[in-house]
């Protein structure tokens, strides 16, 4: 069953407007259950409609025909919108920070209706949900082979670069990957040089992905800005970096709350902490004061009380955070652009 469902998913995602009959006959979806086939038949074929010109245009039916022919009006019958394979929806859905638009809501209710009435649909949607979650965990596997061959620093650097972040080795320039997440192989030459700073803003790192970063014993500056999967559980593991970490930025992480911030008390060497713009923190002002009390040697950047705009934000000229284009491959997970 799993095989056939996977076939179905790919089929829906990649081919924009296939003909239902042909797809059934070519055997590609033979294993798919009845409910799924039903929706396949339902899909009209806009391009063919125009070619055949079955009936002369009827004035009363014209609007209806137009709706039928418009690919957009049928889109809600798709299991997943066609742009889905970019992986953007994957974690947007999980972090739950995207506001539903009207169109989206309509599609969702129809999907709900379908999954209430067809158990195949329900299984399929459950599978899609599982897939989305698996994707994140697949991306966060440890780089054990690189770690064994080149050492922990290189493995950590490669991990971050592959996620689209940037890395700074000691006394070197910032290294970043391009938009296809490729990076030059010269990273592998820096074996004796420790990683000093990491900018992982916007990366899909989760709890298990941190395994690659925690062994970096000389890491001084870590930026986890706008990481959609970084949560309180991740923060509870940062104590392993306590000896070296001096700067930490958590700005804009949607899943971090004051409960996770409380366990940063292990980081006694911390000089600067950015906790601005955390939607999960209920009382940002009070939390900032309490965090300041907890970390007396640390400058805590939090909610901007003076409302002076972005000038108050820390601007490190060496850091590439602001130099980068906002639209990265991963998108902007928390809606802050």
């Amino acid at each position: 069953m799993r095989e056939s469902v996977r076939d179905g998913t790919r089929w829906w995602g990649e081919r924009p407007a296939p003909s239902g009959y042909e797809a059934q006959q070519d055997g590609g979806t033979q294993g798919v259950q009845a409910g799924f086939e039903l929706t396949v038949i339902l899909l009209p074929q806009p391009s063919k409609c125009r070619e055949h010109r079955l009936a002369p245009p009827h004035p009363a039916r014209d609007s209806e025909r137009r709706i039928l022919q418009e690919p957009g009006s049928w889109e809600f019958l798709r299991l997943i919108p066609p742009k889905w394979n970019g992986g953007k929806r994957g974690f947007r859905d999980l972090s739950g920070v995207v506001t539903p638009e009207g169109n989206r809501r309509k599609r969702r209710t129809l999907l709900q209706f379908l999954s209430d009435h067809f158990c195949d649909m329900e299984f399929l949607r459950e599978n899609v949900l599982q897939k989305q979650m698996q994707k994140v965990s697949l991306e966060n596997r440890s780089f054990t082979i690189i770690q064994d061959k080149y050492g922990r620093d290189i493995a950590g650097a490669c991990f971050i670069l592959q996620h689209g972040g940037s890395v700074k080795f000691r006394d070197r320039e910032w290294i970043r990957s391009d938009e296809y997440r490729r990076f030059s192989a010269e990273v592998l030459k820096f074996q004796a040089v420790p990683v000093e700073a990491i900018d992982a803003s916007g990366c899909a790192i989760n709890y298990h992905g941190l395994d690659n970063l925690l062994p970096l014993k000389k890491l001084q500056c870590l930026s986890l800005q706008r990481c959609p999967h970084v949560d309180d559980w991740c923060l509870s593991r940062l104590y392993l970096l306590a000896d070296s970490l001096q700067e930490l930025s958590l700005a804009g992480c949607p899943q971090i709350s004051e409960r996770g911030l409380a366990c940063l008390h292990h980081l006694s060497n911390l000089r600067r902490l950015d906790i601005s713009d955390l939607p999960g923190v209920e009382y940002p002002g009070l939390t900032q004061i309490l965090v300041e009390e907890m970390l007396p040697n640390c400058e805590v950047v939090g909610t901007d009380w003076t409302q002076e705009g972005p000038e108050e934000q820390p601007q490190d000229p060496a850091s590439p955070i602001h130099a980068k284009p906002a639209a990265r491959d991963l998108g902007d997970p928390c809606g802050v652009s």
């Binding site: 999980l94 739950g96 999954s115 329900e122 949607r125 559980w233 923060l235 509870s236 409380a262």
Partner: peptide, 24 residues
């Protein structure tokens, strides 16, 4: 509990907030 939103994920349901305080 850490992966609770994977174990207990329900289609169309909002994610669970366990309010875990990892303070030991």
């Amino acid at each position: 509990l850490r992966n609770i939103n994977e174990y207990l994920a329900v289609v169309d349901g909002p994610p669970l907030d366990l309010q875990f305080n990892p303070l030991g």
